[in-house]
Amino acid sequence: MLLIRCPYCEEERPELEFRNAGEAHIARSANMAGESDDDFEKFFFIRSNPKGIIYERWRHIHGCARFFNAVRDTVTDKFVMTYKAGEPKPAKLPGASK
């Protein structure tokens, strides 16, 4: 069971308290109704499936209930870092493998 640091609780808690909520940094258009088919496809259906670093949304569902973002390495399964929802993709990753 992984340990995940909730950026709101500022604590590492067991994975059981969290739920994955899909890929992060996929912004919903401010003009949703006007999106082209291609753009909507990218927004709703297409997800990256990298070997290595992935940016994900998680929710501390059995804790503070906040959604936040996480950087995880899909090879080692390790969480590289977590940060609050709405914050930009971190430019530099601490101790990332590869």
Binding site: A21, R28, R57, R59, I61, A65, R66, F67, A85, G86
Partner: peptide
């Protein structure tokens, strides 16, 4: 509830 919270916290904060 999760669906509502998700939008409130992340898309329509």
């Amino acid at each position: 509830m999760n669906h509502m919270e998700d939008y409130l916290q992340t898309e329509f904060p």
